[in-house]
């Protein structure tokens, strides 16, 4: 079983230091970075599959050259090697370009499953993993809560989160899976893993290595951010006090006045 996991470096949500530059793009120097949460859940699932079935896990990242540091964190968890697509021409890349580049990079590798997060905690477009599947013409098994390849390595079954529980999806491999928190808690890298990751290979590819036609015609992103607004602050809540009967009455009156009941 060969699994390639797309891992995006994102600002560490715990650091709470995310900041935008003057062009509304992420200021990458402002915050420490970590592997995007949903990607990390996918990586954990991939590592468990390989531990059970044999094979190898590799990671694929599109980021500036400094993304190597975050990739080491994924390698420390147990991925054996990494592929980094880094090219100055990709600064500020939009979603369609990101999809084209990652799909092209994925095609340079051999794998049975390609995993990526359902979305990322910084961009939150939620389209890249699905877009890569479409670009490659492969089945997409989305919003995975559980991933189970068959013993023969020909098919994969995925539980897809749904409003009523989950749907059971099946597809032939190779296939693309978008990953969620429901896959389970990622492991801490062991100290030996951290040391081993330092010598694991990270191959860096540029756009020139991936062929023509990946950038939009004319060199301009078709879409760009033109403004940023913080969400309006929430109105102060209203506390309901008194004994239970009067509280119930007050809430019922309020909901009636709002024509909710």
């Amino acid at each position: 079983m060969r699994i390639l996991v797309m891992t995006k470096p994102v600002p560490d949500p715990a650091a709470n230091a995310e900041r935008l530059g003057p062009d509304f793009r992420l200021d990458r120097g402002a915050s420490p970075t970590v592997v995007n949460g949903n990607d990390e859940y996918g990586l954990e699932a991939a590592l468990q599959l390989v531990e059970a079935l044999g094979g190898e896990v590799a990671i694929l990242t599109m980021a500036p050259a400094g993304g190597v540091e975050t990739m080491r964190k994924a390698l420390a968890m147990g991925a054996l090697r990494g592929v980094l697509v880094a090219d100055d021409a990709l600064a500020g890349a939009d979603i369609p370009t990101t999809i084209r580049v990652l799909a092209a990079a994925a095609q340079t590798q051999e794998w049975d499953l390609l995993l990526g997060g359902l979305d990322t905690s910084d961009g939150a477009g939620g389209a890249v993993t699905a877009g890569v599947a479409a670009r490659l013409g492969l089945p997409l098994l989305s919003a995975a809560a559980h991933i189970a390849p068959d013993e023969a390595g020909r098919k994969v079954r995925v539980r897809r989160l749904s409003a009523k529980g989950y749907d059971l999806l099946e597809a032939p491999m190779p296939a693309v899976v978008s990953c969620t928190q429901a896959l389970g808690t990622p492991r801490y890298p062991s100290l030996k893993g951290i040391m081993a990751a330092r010598s694991r290979q990270i191959t860096t590819l540029s756009l020139a290595d991936l062929g023509e036609g990946l950038l939009p015609a004319g060199g301009q992103w078709p879409s760009r951010v033109v403004g940023v607004q913080p969400p309006p602050s929430r109105a102060t809540g209203r506390a309901v006090t008194g004994d239970a009967a009067s509280q119930a009455r007050e809430i019922a009156d309020y909901l009636t006045a709002q024509r909710i009941i």
């Binding site: 801490y188 890298p189 100290l191 951290i194 040391m195 330092r198």
Partner: peptide
């Protein structure tokens, strides 16, 4: 660099676990 990495890894374990 190795000492910094290992210290950070132990710090995370100490803080979170």
């Amino acid at each position: 660099e190795e000492q910094v990495l290992l210290r950070e890894a132990v710090r995370v374990l100490a803080d979170e676990r």
